[in-house]
């Protein structure tokens, strides 16, 4: 049923991604691919993986942006995956009932046996979270690792999404964003986590934490956080030697 659940549970499972901490290593993207290539959405087809123009289905992609100008500029790594929106038009546009949002925890999934591969849901997602699998002819997307988080054969601490489990910097957090007392909700409140493109009206569940302000001093050492600029080149004999040696 592609209408949204009439009585959704207050539980809203999702991710919190810390843009201050992410180092852009792509480990989450790779482990997502690795897990899901063998999970419920398998295969995640690769086309020409060793060719000149490799292409394939991924549920998580890490972009890198430059923010600000000159000395104030900084690099922000930006992982992008399904935000498991509360108002997901990707679900309501689906003509077949393949796309659905679970009432019990808000996870947005595709039933691949119903999907006709019309691609309309990927047009309806502003965040580019849905990728078509050309080989299988159906739409695929992040499952919030539904086959891990409820997996009773796993030790409780391993029942988190593959991308969260693997992040070496702990920039990704998983939890119930519908519960204001959960660790993730507290983190969002403390760090002023925000929604991507709120103007689209999709009410994403996943939140992003902004990069912290640049540090001006090296904490308790009292030293400046950055080295002063290098001295200008010396004049006279020393300058002549400098120029000679740096040829």
């Amino acid at each position: 049923m592609t209408s949204l659940p009439e009585r959704p549970s207050p539980k809203r499972l999702g991710l919190v991604i810390d843009l201050d901490i992410c180092v852009g290593c792509h480990a989450c993207a790779v482990n997502c691919k690795e897990w899901n290539a063998g999970g419920v959405s398998a295969p995640l087809t690769d086309l020409a993986p060793y060719g000149v123009e490799p292409d394939g289905v991924w549920f998580n992609r890490v972009h890198t942006f430059e923010v600000g100008e000159g000395a104030e500029g900084r690099t922000v790594h930006f992982p992008r995956s399904c935000l498991h929106c509360a108002e997901p038009a990707c679900v309501t546009v689906c003509p077949t009932g393949a796309s659905f949002k679970r009432a019990e925890d808000g996870i947005v999934l595709v039933d691949e046996d119903l999907c006709i591969g019309c691609k309309l849901c990927s047009w309806a997602c502003p965040y580019g979270a849905r990728e078509f699998d050309e080989d299988v002819g159906v739409m695929k997307k992040c499952t919030l690792c539904v086959d891990r988080i409820y997996n009773e054969t796993f030790a409780p601490e391993e029942r988190v999404p593959a991308c969260v489990a693997t992040c070496p910097a702990s920039a990704r957090h998983f939890g119930d964003l519908g519960d204001p007392e959960s660790d993730v909700s507290k983190l969002v409140a403390e760090r002023q986590g925000y929604d991507l493109m709120p103007e689209m009206g999709y009410a994403p569940t996943n939140k992003y934490l902004p990069p912290r302000p640049r540090q001006r001093s090296a904490g308790c050492t009292g030293a400046a956080a950055a080295l002063p600029p290098a001295q200008p080149a010396p004049q006279g004999l020393l300058g002549w030697l400098d120029r000679l040696l740096s040829r």
Binding site: P54, R61, E131, Y194
Partner: peptide, 26 residues
């Protein structure tokens, strides 16, 4: 790009590196 990334108050935002080297489905 600023509203898509939420990086709205630190100056202009521009793509530095795409996640992949060739074209994907998107």
């Amino acid at each position: 790009t600023a509203s898509a990334t939420g990086l709205t108050n630190s100056g202009p935002v521009r793509l530095f590196e795409a996640p992949h080297t060739s074209e994907n489905y998107l």
